[in-house]
C-alpha cells in the first residue's frame, strides 16, 4: 500500500504535469471566456451566454492519461515498482485530482449562479441540464466525464506500449467497427425513435452510470494490458 502512495508521489515530483497545467488551463480558459463576453457588442449580449470552455481541462486529462503512462511507466520499472502498484498509484492519484476538480466545478457553478452568470448572464459551469440536479449527481457527472477521458488516454497508451502502432490501429478500427455495427443494427431495425427516446429519458444520473461503466471497462482493459507489457 505504501508503495502505491509512493507512485503517486513520484507522479507529483514534477508538480507542473498533474497540478500546474490543469489549473493554468482552467484559469486561462475561464478568463478568456470572460474577455470574449466583455468584448461582445451589446446587441449580442441579450439572453444567456453559453460557453463550453469548462471542457478545456477535461481534454487535457485525455493527454494526461497518455503522458502519465508513457512518460513514467518505463521509469517506474527501473524504480522496481510492480505494474499493479504503478497502475493503482497512477489511477488513484488521478481519481483524487478528478474528484477535487469535480467539486471545484460544482462550487464554481454555485458562484456562477450567485453572481448572475459572472455578471454577464453567462453559463460556463452551471449548464442548465446539469445544474438542475442534486449536488452529488453533478459532482458524480463531472468526475465520470474526467475519469473517462483520462482512461481513454491511459488505455490507448497501454495498447500502444504493448502492441505498438499495430495495436492502436486494430483497437481503433475495432471500436469504429463496433460503433458502426450498433448504428447499422439500429438503422436496419428502424429503431431510431426508440433510441432517441431512450437518450431523452436518460437523465444526468443515467448518463453518469453508463459512462462510469465504460470507465470501469477501460480500467480493467488497461490493467490486463499493462500486466504483460514490457518496456
Amino acid at each position: 500500500m505504501n508503495r502505491v502512495i509512493k507512485v503517486a508521489r513520484m507522479q507529483l515530483i514534477n508538480k507542473w504535469t498533474f497540478l500546474g497545467i490543469p489549473m493554468a488551463i482552467l484559469l486561462g480558459s475561464t478568463l478568456l471566456t470572460f474577455a470574449i463576453w466583455a468584448m461582445l457588442p451589446p446587441g449580442a449580449r441579450e439572453g444567456t451566454l453559453y460557453s463550453g470552455s469548462g471542457q478545456a481541462v477535461m481534454w487535457y486529462f485525455l493527454a494526461l492519461g497518455i503522458q502519465s503512462l508513457t512518460y513514467t511507466f518505463p521509469f517506474s520499472q527501473a524504480m522496481s515498482v510492480s505494474r499493479r502498484t504503478f497502475y493503482l498509484g497512477t489511477l488513484g492519484l488521478f481519481a483524487a485530482i478528478a474528484m477535487a476538480y469535480s467539486i471545484l466545478y460544482y462550487l464554481l457553478g454555485l458562484v456562477e449562479k450567485a453572481t448572475g452568470g459572472w455578471g454577464f448572464n453567462g453559463q460556463l459551469f452551471a449548464l442548465d441540464w446539469i445544474a438542475g440536479n442534486h449536488p452529488v449527481i453533478q459532482v458524480l457527472f463531472y468526475f465520470v466525464a474526467m475519469v473517462l477521458l483520462f482512461m481513454i488516454g491511459f488505455w490507448g497508451a497501454t495498447v500502444y506500449l504493448r502492441w505498438k502502432a499495430t495495436g492502436l490501429l486494430v483497437a481503433g478500427i475495432g471500436v469504429a467497427a463496433l460503433l458502426l455495427g450498433v448504428l447499422a443494427a439500429v438503422g436496419l431495425n428502424d429503431a431510431w425513435p426508440q433510441v432517441g427516446a431512450w437518450f431523452a429519458a436518460m437523465q444526468v444520473l443515467g448518463l453518469s452510470i453508463v459512462l462510469g461503466l465504460v470507465c470501469v471497462a477501460l480500467a480493467g482493459g488497461s490493467y490486463l494490458t499493462l500486466r504483460r507489457a514490457t518496456t
Binding site: N14, T17, Y71, P74, A78, T231
Partner: peptide, 10 residues
Amino acid sequence: RESQKYPEDF
C-alpha cells in the same frame, strides 16, 4: 537498462 527511459520532463 542500457536504454533506460526517464519521464520526459524530469
